[in-house]
Protein backbone atom coordinates (compact mmCIF):
# COMPACT_ATOMS: atom_id res chain seq x y z
CA UNK A 1 0.00 0.00 0.00
CA UNK A 2 2.71 2.43 1.00
CA UNK A 3 4.59 1.41 -2.11
CA UNK A 4 1.59 2.30 -4.22
CA UNK A 5 1.26 5.65 -2.47
CA UNK A 6 4.92 6.35 -3.06
CA UNK A 7 4.54 5.48 -6.71
CA UNK A 8 1.52 7.75 -7.11
CA UNK A 9 3.32 10.61 -5.40
CA UNK A 10 6.19 10.06 -7.76
CA UNK A 11 3.97 10.23 -10.81
CA UNK A 12 4.21 13.44 -12.81
CA UNK A 13 0.52 13.73 -13.52
CA UNK A 14 -0.59 13.20 -9.94
CA UNK A 15 -0.20 16.79 -8.81
CA UNK A 16 -1.81 18.20 -11.92
CA UNK A 17 -4.67 15.80 -11.35
CA UNK A 18 -4.97 17.01 -7.77
CA UNK A 19 -5.10 20.59 -9.08
CA UNK A 20 -7.81 19.64 -11.55
CA UNK A 21 -9.89 18.00 -8.81
CA UNK A 22 -9.64 21.10 -6.64
CA UNK A 23 -10.63 23.27 -9.61
CA UNK A 24 -13.63 21.03 -10.33
CA UNK A 25 -14.76 21.21 -6.70
CA UNK A 26 -14.52 25.01 -6.71
CA UNK A 27 -16.47 25.18 -9.97
CA UNK A 28 -19.22 22.85 -8.74
CA UNK A 29 -19.64 24.97 -5.65
CA UNK A 30 -19.91 28.24 -7.57
CA UNK A 31 -22.27 27.15 -10.36
CA UNK A 32 -25.06 24.60 -10.21
CA UNK A 33 -25.03 24.23 -14.00
CA UNK A 34 -21.42 23.11 -13.97
CA UNK A 35 -21.81 19.60 -12.60
CA UNK A 36 -24.30 18.43 -15.20
CA UNK A 37 -23.14 15.45 -17.26
CA UNK A 38 -23.84 17.33 -20.52
CA UNK A 39 -21.58 20.12 -19.37
CA UNK A 40 -18.74 17.70 -18.65
CA UNK A 41 -19.17 16.22 -22.10
CA UNK A 42 -19.06 19.73 -23.57
CA UNK A 43 -15.78 20.43 -21.78
CA UNK A 44 -14.27 17.11 -22.85
CA UNK A 45 -15.30 17.72 -26.43
CA UNK A 46 -13.70 21.16 -26.42
CA UNK A 47 -10.57 19.78 -24.73
CA UNK A 48 -10.28 16.96 -27.30
CA UNK A 49 -9.10 19.22 -30.12
CA UNK A 50 -6.57 20.98 -27.88
CA UNK A 51 -5.42 17.61 -26.55
CA UNK A 52 -4.83 16.08 -29.98
CA UNK A 53 -3.05 19.30 -30.99
CA UNK A 54 -0.68 19.06 -28.02
CA UNK A 55 -0.32 15.26 -27.91
CA UNK A 56 2.71 15.11 -30.20
CA UNK A 57 4.00 18.41 -28.87
CA UNK A 58 4.39 16.66 -25.52
CA UNK A 59 7.05 14.40 -27.07
CA UNK A 60 8.91 17.43 -28.44
CA UNK A 61 8.88 19.12 -25.04
CA UNK A 62 10.07 15.93 -23.33
CA UNK A 63 12.89 15.91 -25.86
CA UNK A 64 13.82 19.37 -24.61
CA UNK A 65 12.68 21.12 -27.79
CA UNK A 66 9.63 23.14 -28.70
CA UNK A 67 7.30 23.15 -31.68
CA UNK A 68 5.65 26.49 -32.44
CA UNK A 69 4.24 25.33 -35.75
CA UNK A 70 1.41 23.09 -34.52
CA UNK A 71 -1.36 25.69 -34.80
CA UNK A 72 -0.35 26.66 -38.33
CA UNK A 73 0.06 23.01 -39.36
CA UNK A 74 -3.46 22.28 -38.12
CA UNK A 75 -4.79 25.22 -40.11
CA UNK A 76 -2.94 24.24 -43.31
CA UNK A 77 -4.05 20.60 -43.12
CA UNK A 78 -7.63 21.65 -42.30
CA UNK A 79 -7.74 24.09 -45.21
CA UNK A 80 -6.16 21.71 -47.73
CA UNK A 81 -8.50 18.93 -46.74
CA UNK A 82 -11.53 21.20 -46.94
CA UNK A 83 -10.44 22.18 -50.47
CA UNK A 84 -9.97 18.53 -51.44
CA UNK A 85 -13.35 17.58 -50.01
CA UNK A 86 -14.97 20.36 -51.99
CA UNK A 87 -13.23 18.99 -55.09
CA UNK A 88 -14.95 15.67 -54.47
CA UNK A 89 -12.07 13.59 -53.07
CA UNK A 90 -13.47 10.83 -50.80
CA UNK A 91 -13.22 11.31 -47.05
CA UNK A 92 -10.85 8.41 -46.30
CA UNK A 93 -8.38 9.67 -48.91
CA UNK A 94 -8.56 13.20 -47.55
CA UNK A 95 -7.83 12.06 -44.03
CA UNK A 96 -4.83 10.03 -45.24
CA UNK A 97 -3.52 12.98 -47.24
CA UNK A 98 -3.98 15.23 -44.21
CA UNK A 99 -1.94 12.98 -41.96
CA UNK A 100 0.78 12.62 -44.62
CA UNK A 101 0.98 16.41 -44.94
CA UNK A 102 1.50 16.58 -41.20
CA UNK A 103 4.26 14.01 -41.47
CA UNK A 104 5.99 16.01 -44.21
CA UNK A 105 5.96 19.21 -42.15
CA UNK A 106 7.24 17.20 -39.17
CA UNK A 107 10.06 15.80 -41.28
CA UNK A 108 11.01 19.33 -42.28
CA UNK A 109 11.11 20.38 -38.63
CA UNK A 110 13.09 17.30 -37.72
CA UNK A 111 15.53 17.95 -40.56
CA UNK A 112 16.05 21.58 -39.51
CA UNK A 113 16.62 20.67 -35.88
CA UNK A 114 18.64 17.46 -36.07
CA UNK A 115 20.56 17.71 -39.35
CA UNK A 116 20.97 21.46 -39.86
CA UNK A 117 21.08 21.85 -36.06
CA UNK A 118 19.00 24.98 -35.80
CA UNK A 119 17.57 25.72 -32.35
CA UNK A 120 14.07 24.21 -32.20
CA UNK A 121 12.52 27.55 -31.29
CA UNK A 122 13.85 29.30 -34.40
CA UNK A 123 13.34 26.37 -36.75
CA UNK A 124 9.70 25.78 -35.82
CA UNK A 125 9.00 29.50 -35.62
CA UNK A 126 10.17 29.75 -39.23
CA UNK A 127 8.14 26.70 -40.25
CA UNK A 128 5.17 28.30 -38.53
CA UNK A 129 5.46 31.28 -40.87
CA UNK A 130 5.98 29.15 -43.96
CA UNK A 131 3.05 26.89 -43.17
CA UNK A 132 0.80 29.80 -42.23
CA UNK A 133 1.77 31.55 -45.45
CA UNK A 134 0.97 28.45 -47.47
CA UNK A 135 -2.45 28.24 -45.85
CA UNK A 136 -3.12 31.89 -46.72
CA UNK A 137 -2.00 31.35 -50.30
CA UNK A 138 -4.14 28.29 -50.93
CA UNK A 139 -7.19 29.82 -49.25
CA UNK A 140 -6.78 33.19 -50.95
CA UNK A 141 -8.81 34.94 -48.28
CA UNK A 142 -11.78 32.64 -48.56
CA UNK A 143 -13.61 30.55 -46.00
CA UNK A 144 -14.70 27.06 -47.05
CA UNK A 145 -17.85 25.71 -45.47
CA UNK A 146 -20.59 23.09 -45.77
CA UNK A 147 -18.43 20.00 -45.94
CA UNK A 148 -19.80 16.50 -46.65
CA UNK A 149 -21.46 14.74 -43.74
CA UNK A 150 -19.15 11.73 -43.96
CA UNK A 151 -16.34 14.08 -42.98
CA UNK A 152 -18.06 16.26 -40.38
CA UNK A 153 -19.01 13.02 -38.61
CA UNK A 154 -15.53 12.87 -37.03
CA UNK A 155 -16.13 16.25 -35.42
CA UNK A 156 -19.82 16.22 -34.59
CA UNK A 157 -21.01 12.58 -34.70
CA UNK A 158 -21.71 10.14 -31.90
CA UNK A 159 -20.61 6.54 -31.38
CA UNK A 160 -22.52 4.02 -29.27
CA UNK A 161 -25.43 6.41 -28.87
CA UNK A 162 -24.05 9.11 -26.58
CA UNK A 163 -20.27 9.08 -27.01
CA UNK A 164 -18.97 11.94 -29.20
CA UNK A 165 -16.57 10.65 -31.87
CA UNK A 166 -14.26 13.52 -31.03
CA UNK A 167 -13.72 12.23 -27.48
CA UNK A 168 -13.19 8.67 -28.72
CA UNK A 169 -10.51 9.87 -31.14
CA UNK A 170 -8.83 11.88 -28.38
CA UNK A 171 -8.79 8.81 -26.11
CA UNK A 172 -7.28 6.68 -28.86
CA UNK A 173 -4.60 9.34 -29.39
CA UNK A 174 -3.85 9.38 -25.65
CA UNK A 175 -3.53 5.58 -25.60
CA UNK A 176 -1.20 5.55 -28.59
CA UNK A 177 0.97 8.28 -27.07
CA UNK A 178 0.99 6.63 -23.66
CA UNK A 179 2.25 3.34 -25.04
CA UNK A 180 4.73 5.07 -27.34
CA UNK A 181 6.20 7.39 -24.71
CA UNK A 182 6.24 5.07 -21.70
CA UNK A 183 6.53 1.54 -23.02
CA UNK A 184 8.74 1.58 -26.12
CA UNK A 185 12.44 2.00 -26.77
CA UNK A 186 11.90 5.07 -28.89
CA UNK A 187 9.90 6.64 -26.05
CA UNK A 188 12.70 5.97 -23.59
CA UNK A 189 15.19 7.39 -26.10
CA UNK A 190 13.19 10.61 -26.24
CA UNK A 191 13.24 10.87 -22.45
CA UNK A 192 17.00 10.23 -22.33
CA UNK A 193 17.71 12.86 -24.97
CA UNK A 194 15.64 15.33 -22.96
CA UNK A 195 17.43 14.70 -19.66
CA UNK A 196 20.92 14.89 -21.07
CA UNK A 197 21.59 15.05 -24.77
CA UNK A 198 25.33 14.47 -24.57
CA UNK A 199 24.98 11.53 -22.24
CA UNK A 200 22.36 10.04 -24.53
CA UNK A 201 24.65 10.44 -27.52
CA UNK A 202 27.59 8.81 -25.74
CA UNK A 203 25.48 5.91 -24.55
CA UNK A 204 24.68 5.04 -28.13
CA UNK A 205 21.13 6.32 -28.32
CA UNK A 206 20.13 7.26 -31.85
CA UNK A 207 19.51 10.90 -31.04
CA UNK A 208 18.59 11.96 -34.57
CA UNK A 209 16.01 9.23 -34.88
CA UNK A 210 14.44 10.29 -31.58
CA UNK A 211 14.31 13.91 -32.73
CA UNK A 212 12.75 13.02 -36.06
CA UNK A 213 10.13 10.81 -34.43
CA UNK A 214 9.16 13.49 -31.91
CA UNK A 215 8.77 16.25 -34.52
CA UNK A 216 6.94 14.01 -36.99
CA UNK A 217 4.51 12.95 -34.27
CA UNK A 218 3.97 16.54 -33.25
CA UNK A 219 3.06 17.63 -36.78
CA UNK A 220 1.04 14.51 -37.58
CA UNK A 221 -1.16 14.93 -34.55
CA UNK A 222 -1.42 18.63 -35.34
CA UNK A 223 -2.67 17.60 -38.78
CA UNK A 224 -5.21 15.28 -37.19
CA UNK A 225 -6.30 18.12 -34.91
CA UNK A 226 -6.72 20.32 -37.99
CA UNK A 227 -9.05 17.72 -39.47
CA UNK A 228 -11.02 17.56 -36.23
CA UNK A 229 -11.23 21.36 -36.03
CA UNK A 230 -12.49 21.60 -39.60
CA UNK A 231 -15.01 18.82 -39.09
CA UNK A 232 -16.27 20.33 -35.87
CA UNK A 233 -16.70 23.83 -37.30
CA UNK A 234 -17.92 22.49 -40.63
CA UNK A 235 -15.67 25.19 -42.08
CA UNK A 236 -12.02 26.01 -42.70
CA UNK A 237 -10.12 29.28 -42.81
CA UNK A 238 -6.43 30.12 -42.91
CA UNK A 239 -6.26 31.69 -39.45
CA UNK A 240 -8.11 28.79 -37.84
CA UNK A 241 -5.14 27.70 -35.69
CA UNK A 242 -4.57 31.15 -34.18
CA UNK A 243 -7.17 30.59 -31.47
CA UNK A 244 -5.00 27.82 -30.06
CA UNK A 245 -1.64 29.62 -30.32
CA UNK A 246 0.50 29.09 -27.27
CA UNK A 247 -2.42 27.40 -25.52
CA UNK A 248 -0.94 24.16 -26.81
CA UNK A 249 2.36 24.71 -25.03
CA UNK A 250 0.46 25.89 -21.95
CA UNK A 251 -1.63 22.70 -21.89
CA UNK A 252 1.51 20.55 -21.98
CA UNK A 253 3.36 22.55 -19.33
CA UNK A 254 0.39 22.82 -16.97
CA UNK A 255 0.23 19.04 -17.18
CA UNK A 256 3.64 18.81 -15.54
CA UNK A 257 5.88 18.35 -18.59
CA UNK A 258 9.07 20.30 -18.11
CA UNK A 259 10.09 22.83 -20.75
CA UNK A 260 13.68 21.76 -20.08
CA UNK A 261 12.91 18.24 -21.21
CA UNK A 262 13.33 14.79 -19.75
CA UNK A 263 10.15 14.85 -17.77
CA UNK A 264 6.46 14.68 -18.55
CA UNK A 265 3.78 12.59 -20.16
CA UNK A 266 0.59 12.49 -22.15
CA UNK A 267 -1.70 12.03 -19.12
CA UNK A 268 -0.53 15.37 -17.79
CA UNK A 269 -1.23 17.01 -21.16
CA UNK A 270 -4.74 15.56 -21.07
CA UNK A 271 -5.30 17.12 -17.66
CA UNK A 272 -3.78 20.41 -18.83
CA UNK A 273 -6.10 20.60 -21.85
CA UNK A 274 -9.18 19.84 -19.78
CA UNK A 275 -8.12 22.45 -17.25
CA UNK A 276 -7.72 25.22 -19.85
CA UNK A 277 -11.14 24.51 -21.37
CA UNK A 278 -12.73 24.22 -17.96
CA UNK A 279 -11.63 27.72 -17.01
CA UNK A 280 -13.42 29.28 -20.01
CA UNK A 281 -16.46 27.10 -19.42
CA UNK A 282 -16.94 28.17 -15.81
CA UNK A 283 -16.33 31.83 -16.66
CA UNK A 284 -19.05 31.63 -19.32
CA UNK A 285 -21.46 29.95 -16.92
CA UNK A 286 -20.77 32.49 -14.19
CA UNK A 287 -21.12 35.33 -16.68
CA UNK A 288 -17.75 36.90 -15.85
CA UNK A 289 -17.07 40.10 -17.77
CA UNK A 290 -15.10 39.72 -21.00
CA UNK A 291 -12.67 42.32 -19.71
CA UNK A 292 -11.72 40.23 -16.68
CA UNK A 293 -11.48 36.87 -18.46
CA UNK A 294 -7.90 37.03 -19.82
CA UNK A 295 -6.59 38.09 -16.41
CA UNK A 296 -8.32 35.22 -14.69
CA UNK A 297 -6.95 32.70 -17.19
CA UNK A 298 -3.45 34.03 -16.50
CA UNK A 299 -3.87 33.83 -12.73
CA UNK A 300 -5.21 30.27 -12.82
CA UNK A 301 -2.28 29.17 -15.02
CA UNK A 302 0.20 30.67 -12.55
CA UNK A 303 -1.47 28.95 -9.59
CA UNK A 304 -1.51 25.60 -11.39
CA UNK A 305 2.12 25.70 -12.50
CA UNK A 306 3.20 26.94 -9.07
CA UNK A 307 1.38 23.99 -7.53
CA UNK A 308 3.24 21.69 -9.86
CA UNK A 309 6.64 23.24 -9.20
CA UNK A 310 6.53 23.05 -5.40
CA UNK A 311 5.64 19.41 -5.68
CA UNK A 312 8.46 18.88 -8.17
CA UNK A 313 11.17 19.31 -5.56
CA UNK A 314 9.72 16.48 -3.57
CA UNK A 315 9.50 14.28 -6.62
CA UNK A 316 13.08 15.01 -7.52
CA UNK A 317 14.48 13.72 -4.24
CA UNK A 318 12.43 10.56 -4.55
CA UNK A 319 13.55 9.96 -8.11
CA UNK A 320 17.17 10.73 -7.58
CA UNK A 321 17.23 8.30 -4.69
CA UNK A 322 16.31 5.53 -7.07
CA UNK A 323 17.72 6.44 -10.42
CA UNK A 324 20.92 8.39 -9.85
CA UNK A 325 22.35 7.44 -6.48
CA UNK A 326 25.76 8.84 -7.47
CA UNK A 327 24.35 12.31 -7.61
CA UNK A 328 22.74 12.11 -4.20
CA UNK A 329 25.92 10.75 -2.76
CA UNK A 330 27.89 13.63 -4.19
CA UNK A 331 25.42 16.14 -2.93
CA UNK A 332 25.59 14.75 0.57
CA UNK A 333 29.35 15.02 0.43
CA UNK A 334 29.10 18.62 -0.65
CA UNK A 335 26.82 19.50 2.19
CA UNK A 336 28.81 17.48 4.72
Amino acid sequence: MSHLLEKTKESRAFYSFLGLIILVIICSLTSSDFSKIENYITIFRQASVLLVLSAGLTAVLILGGIDLSVGATAALVGCTCALLLKAGVPTWAVITIGLCMGAVIGTLNGFLVSIIRLPAFVATYATNWIVKGLAIVIMNGQIIFNLPESFTFIGTGYLFGQMPVLIVIALVVVSICYVLYQKTTIGRDIFSCGSNLEAARYSGIRVKRAQFVAFIMSSMFAGLAGLLMTARLNAAEASMGDSYGLNTVAAVVIGGTSMLGGEGGIIGTMIGSIMLMLITNIMNLLGISSFAQPMIIGLVIIVMVFFDSISRDERKTVRRGVAIPMNVQKRKDDIG
Partner: peptide, 23 residues
Protein backbone atom coordinates in the same frame (compact mmCIF):
# COMPACT_ATOMS: atom_id res chain seq x y z
CA UNK B 1 -29.47 36.32 -20.07
CA UNK B 2 -25.77 36.31 -20.93
CA UNK B 3 -23.26 38.56 -22.66
CA UNK B 4 -19.88 36.89 -23.19
CA UNK B 5 -16.94 37.34 -25.52
CA UNK B 6 -16.15 35.05 -28.45
CA UNK B 7 -13.26 37.29 -29.59
CA UNK B 8 -14.71 37.49 -33.11
CA UNK B 9 -13.50 33.90 -33.72
CA UNK B 10 -15.60 31.05 -35.05
CA UNK B 11 -14.05 28.44 -32.75
CA UNK B 12 -14.60 30.58 -29.69
CA UNK B 13 -18.12 31.57 -30.73
CA UNK B 14 -18.90 27.87 -30.93
CA UNK B 15 -17.30 27.05 -27.59
CA UNK B 16 -18.97 29.89 -25.73
CA UNK B 17 -22.36 28.95 -27.17
CA UNK B 18 -21.79 25.31 -26.19
CA UNK B 19 -21.03 26.44 -22.66
CA UNK B 20 -23.94 28.87 -22.38
CA UNK B 21 -26.66 26.56 -23.70
CA UNK B 22 -25.84 24.24 -20.81
CA UNK B 23 -27.26 26.88 -18.54
Amino acid sequence: VASQTGNFKRTEGMQVTENLIQK
